[in-house]
Design a binder for these strands. Structure first.
Length: 191
DNA sequence: CTTTCGATGATCT
DNA sequence: GATCATCGAAAGG
């Protein structure tokens, strides 16, 4: 496991490095959010990635500057939030799959229509709804409002496993999580 | 507990 | 026309 003393996330790094570095980071959108506990990495060489077949109108953000938001509509229903990474032109990003709610619980409960904290942000679609993510956030930088992002205060452990809900590159361990967190969308296989 | 299935619409072939 | 980086309700053991 790597050690991180900085308060900054280096988004000019491969997606799987960024995905791991984000575990334990704090994410707020308009003051609502919490601690990132689950992420997945996608890059252009990955058949499961939206960028695999090159730039399109939808994935343009992932070919733009790193450290920005990439938002897409999933199954025609959900908004999912990703962070772009690597220098511009590489087509890579990290899907934010789950956070542990810390701030703005009431707001999240209203948006989600659920009161159980574990059902607020445990999954990319739920998280998008709880944080109020829409296409209005597409391409916005993560270091300015409405976003707030802070790296973990101290070195943070992480676990890895196969990604969820994909049909290609199914066995690649590019899903990362906070060990033992009750807020992940699905448990990680026991070590 | 598990599995199945419908919703719903943009995107790409 | 097929495929989704999903969720939740319903049905079955």
């Amino acid at each position: 496991m790597s050690r991180r003393g900085s308060r900054e996330i280096d988004f000019d790094a491969p997606a799987h490095v960024v995905a791991r570095a984000l575990i334990g980071a704090t994410l707020l959108v308009d003051g609502v959010g919490g601690v990132i506990v689950e992420t997945e990495a996608y890059d252009q060489s990955d058949p499961a990635s939206h960028t695999h077949r090159g730039p399109t109108a939808r994935n343009a953000a992932m070919f733009g500057p790193s450290g920005h938001a990439y938002v897409y509509r999933s199954y025609g229903i959900h908004w999912c939030l990703n962070f772009t990474c690597r220098p511009a032109g590489h087509g890579a990003g990290v899907l934010i799959r789950a956070i542990e709610p810390r701030a703005g619980l009431e707001q999240m409960q209203r948006r989600r229509g659920a009161s159980d904290p574990r059902l607020l942000c445990s999954g990319p679609g739920r998280l998008g709804q709880a944080l109020g993510i829409t296409m209005a956030h597409y391409g916005l930088p993560l270091d300015r409002p409405p976003f707030f992002l802070a790296a973990p205060e101290a070195a943070t452990e992480s676990v890895a496993g196969p990604r969820i809900g994909i049909s290609k590159a199914v066995d690649e361990p590019w899903r990362f999580g906070l060990p033992g967190s009750r807020f992940v969308s699905k448990p990680f296989a026991k070590a």
